[in-house]
């Protein structure tokens, strides 16, 4: 594996194994020590390198939040958009230039809180997007407020007596909305997560990977859960892998078992497949699809 070899050939200055895919000039990044977001960046970068896809054709779109900063550190076409709107922005990119591999990487608050409506509709359309949602059970960037993923009983700054609302189970939300690939991992499952991302890169349609990530600064502190390392121990002790589990059984309660695995992997026609087939049927030769490289107006 090339990545591993590179990291062990240390000169005076150790190069980050994913350096070619990172905007090294922007390091140090904004994330706290032992935050889980960096792990996701590394897994994504590794998966991309291994996948062999043309990196010039990869776009990464993020919304707003700590997780929303991911697009800013990857040396790819990167779009740091508005809070909650990464999915519709990415939808425009994909439809504007269908040959692109468009990845959305963002937070739980961003993608299923303020952006929840876009999430269910993007999944319903089965639009070709790879979506990696970093779930730290909280609104990190704004200081630890309640999220639609915060488990019951967990504390957040806006639920100082503990959360009484019912959170979403994200794999279930994605699957029932129509996603064609659904998986969940934690930041401890580095190899599985990387492999899952790589697998999803090669698939089509709305592909959803939830990554449970520690936020030591806010979620863990507010809930007295210790350091990032404690979070890893916790994942180690409580995460169970049940591939193909029924997505109705994937709820997460406060500090209890986290079911991980790949739950859905079905080839279904994507938005573009359906559109092309339908217009070809209806319009025959009159149908002119948007070319893969986009419908740009070229100077003759």
């Amino acid at each position: 594996m090339t990545v591993a070899t590179k990291s062990t050939t240390a000169s005076q200055e150790l190069e980050h194994p994913s350096a070619p895919l990172l905007r090294m000039e922007r390091i140090p990044h904004v994330w706290c020590p032992s935050c889980g977001i960096g792990t996701v960046v590394k897994c994504y970068a590794t998966a991309l390198e291994r996948s062999g896809v043309d990196l010039d054709k990869v776009s990464v779109v993020s919304g707003i939040g700590c997780s929303g900063r991911v697009a800013g550190y990857l040396k790819l076409d990167g779009f740091h958009t508005t809070h909650g709107r990464a999915l519709p922005f990415a939808t425009g990119l994909k439809l504007g230039r269908p040959e692109l591999l468009v990845t959305v990487i963002s937070g739980d608050g961003d993608l299923v809180g303020i952006g929840g409506n876009h999430f269910i509709h993007a999944a319903r359309r089965n639009i070709d997007l790879l979506v990696i949602l970093i779930n730290n059970f909280i609104y990190g960037m704004t200081g630890g407020q309640n999220a639609p993923t915060t488990p019951q009983q967990a504390r957040s700054s806006t639920m100082p007596y503990g959360n009484f609302e019912t959170p979403f189970s994200l794999p279930h939300l994605a699957a029932s909305s129509g996603a064609s690939y659904v998986a969940r991992w934690t930041c401890l499952h580095i190899r599985r997560l990387t492999w899952s991302i790589e697998e999803a890169i090669h698939k089509r349609g709305f592909r959803f990977i939830e990554v449970i990530a520690p936020c030591p600064t806010l979620y863990a502190r507010l809930n007295k859960l210790g350091t990032g390392l404690d979070a890893m121990r916790f994942y180690h002790d409580t995460a169970v892998i049940r591939n193909d589990a029924d997505t109705r059984e994937l709820d997460i309660s406060f500090q209890s078992e986290i079911t991980c695995g790949k739950f859905v992997d079905e080839e279904r026609p994507t938005f573009l497949d359906l559109m092309h087939n339908h217009y070809s049927d209806q319009l025959g030769d009159r149908y002119v699809p948007t070319p893969p490289e986009g419908g740009m107006l070229h100077e003759q």
Binding site: G84, G96, L100, N117
Partner: peptide, 17 residues
């Protein structure tokens, strides 16, 4: 919200939106 976001996204492919 989504319509406007999609239009901005698509514009970055060079398409007029």
């Amino acid at each position: 919200l989504a319509s406007m976001a999609a239009v901005v996204g698509a514009a970055w492919t060079g398409t007029k939106t």
